[in-house]
Write a protein that binds this DNA or RNA. Structure first.
Lengths: 150, 150
DNA sequence: TTACAATAATTGTATATACAAATATACTAA
DNA sequence: TTAGTATATTTGTATATACAATTATTGTAA
């Protein structure tokens, strides 16, 4: 991808600005391809992320704050995100008996089955996105990603 | 940033998946910091992006499809995005006399003034985000970004 | 000229997201 | 016990975004 061509600019862009723009263009590509891959399952990237978190719990229920803490993109409304997953019968929600402020969220069998299928397609998408990277280059990229000030 | 710690996972993540997650975590950081930097001006990142595109036109008006084509994150509704900028009096809109299907969008003096101020703060944010990168590392990063399959 | 296709923008609708305020429950110190 | 504080989630509201349908205008071929 040629950044200047993509954003159709003629003037010179400072290296730092160019890098940030380039980065965000790639991030958008990743997002689009992931969203596209998940479309047949009618779940958003965020919903998929929540399902993965719940599977990682291995049967142990998670509450909303745990989920939010682990999400890649934190959204300010995990309640409604989970609502959508309940409607699809991918997760179930119960109030925690020991602490009734908390709720317990569990992935259902149906959710797990669908998630396996999503996983396969998402992996394919990841492999496709990164097909030009050697193992060494992937490591290099991760090292550079670590340099971003957060 | 330690990815595994951030998403609080214990199991091993495949290198490709880890890279994508890492990438998106950084992309979110960039977005948050940019949005924060622009907050005092009451414009979104997308609105800022449109203002920059209009300034790049150097007085020549742009129509909606031109703007959309040049945006970093294409959104499916540039009409309403421009509406917001008109409300703030940062841009003005006229129907193109030679082709009345098109509209001409221009940045106003007020828009240009505000944009200069935004630019300064956004540059600061960019520098801050990339402060740990040497020039060589920035080049390396841009080369790796080019390897993503789009 | 007129019908049809192409182009450009707008509008409708559903969902997503950010942020603040409200609600419900539990904990704690007087 | 009770008042106040902390925790956990939910709700309200505004804005953002995706996608499809609609409207307006222009170009073109019969």
């Amino acid at each position: 991808m040629n950044v200047e061509e993509r954003i159709k600019t003629v003037g010179k862009i400072p290296m730092e600005r160019r890098t940030i723009i380039h980065f965000m263009l790639v991030a958008n590509t990743i997002n689009e391809q992931m969203a596209q891959a998940l479309k047949p399952f009618d779940v958003s990237i965020q919903q998929f992320n929540v399902l993965r978190i719940l599977r990682g719990q291995k049967g142990k229920p998670a509450n909303l704050s745990t989920i939010n803490e682990r999400m890649v993109t934190k959204m300010s409304n995990t309640t409604r995100l989970v609502d959508k997953l309940i409607l699809k019968e991918y997760v179930e929600r119960n109030t925690c008996p020991s602490n009734r402020r908390k709720i317990e969220i569990l992935i259902t069998l149906k959710g797990n089955e669908q998630l396996s299928k999503m996983d396969a397609i998402v992996s394919e998408t990841e492999t496709n996105l990164l097909q030009q990277f050697s193992t060494n280059e992937l490591e290099q990229l991760n090292i550079l990603l670590n340099k971003f000030q957060s």
